[in-house]
Computed example of a mutant assay.
Amino acid sequence: MGALIWLASYPKSGNTWLRSFLHHLLANPPAPLPPDELRKFCFADDARIFFDRAAGRATQGMPTAQIAALRPKAQALMAATAKQSVFVKTHSLLGEHHGKPLINEAVTAGALYVLRDPRDVAISGAHHYGLTLDGMIERLANKAAATGNTPQAAYTLQSSWSDHVTSWTRHRHPQLLVLRYEDMEQQPTATFATVARFLGLSPPAERLQRAIDFSSFKVARDLEQKHGFNERSQHADSFFRAGRSGQWREALTPAQVARIEADHGEVMKRFGYL
């Protein structure tokens, strides 16, 4: 039986970018892979198929407390599918829901956590969820924020942006690597080389650079336009929208910026956003 390596983030913070880089680094294809190929590379922690297997029956419509109780077994089933470690995408809080762990540490090998300036997350999230900017700013502060409860995805809890980031980063742990979206964008070679080293990999420079190039935002956006992407929200025309840091300076009003900084200033300061 293998173990799970979590690729964790609050929604719209760079999780797909990290997954794409790792997919291209490990597969080393001669050309960029369509975004939907990520499904073959990485599990999603809310994939209902594993909850159905854990329950021995269909779980759609099941109360959230029962889903929470099934989650540790569902994650153990994910680990059991591989002889070695397997990557799992998650937007879950690192904590408990209905008294049950959202992350099963007994089958965990490690985690990479990506965070992004919440002022930019507000813009990207509003686009993805079909919310107004003010509505997304409210969601960033909502301790009950959750996703899932669809035919494909089980209900899971994110909580607020600050709580989510703090839950994953409050303790220094040798099996945890914390990344900032902005460093992935502005210092890609150094940042992604750190990712490779964390995973015990020493790729040649040209292979590392090829994975960085093939997973770039422009390439991903072009591939989505050509092939589509199953993770695109029904509220949005595309999954890959802009991919640029600092958009909040033009898109948010002073009052909206002040609200985000008031809600999340302590954590923002910790990671250099204030």
Rank of each mutant, 00 (worst) to 15 (best):
V267F: 08
V107P: 11
D237Q: 15
K100G: 04
A258T: 13
G228V: 06
Q75I: 00
P188V: 14
S85W: 03
G14Q: 10
I137N: 03
H264W: 10
D36V: 09
T108M: 14
H127S: 07
W248P: 05
E266S: 12
K12V: 01
S92P: 01
R221D: 09
R180I: 04
C42S: 15
N15E: 01
F198D: 10
Q66M: 09
A236H: 11
Q60G: 08
P203L: 08
T150W: 02
I103G: 06
I49L: 13
M1D: 11
T169G: 04
E224R: 10
A69H: 03
A122S: 13
R119Q: 06
Y10P: 03
R259Q: 07
A44C: 12
I123F: 09
G99N: 06
F87A: 05
P30K: 11
M268F: 06
R197V: 10
N28I: 05
S162A: 13
E96D: 15
A153D: 00
G99L: 06
W6Y: 13
A55L: 07
P118Y: 08
S162T: 15
W161N: 04
E261Y: 08
H173Q: 15
Q247L: 14
E138V: 09
Q256S: 09
Q175F: 09
K73C: 06
N230H: 15
L131D: 11
A65T: 08
F87W: 08
A220G: 11
S85P: 01
K40E: 14
E266F: 04
T150E: 03
I49G: 08
M184L: 15
P32S: 14
A196F: 02
A74D: 00
N15Y: 00
R221T: 08
D222I: 12
E224T: 12
A145M: 03
A258H: 11
A154P: 05
S238R: 13
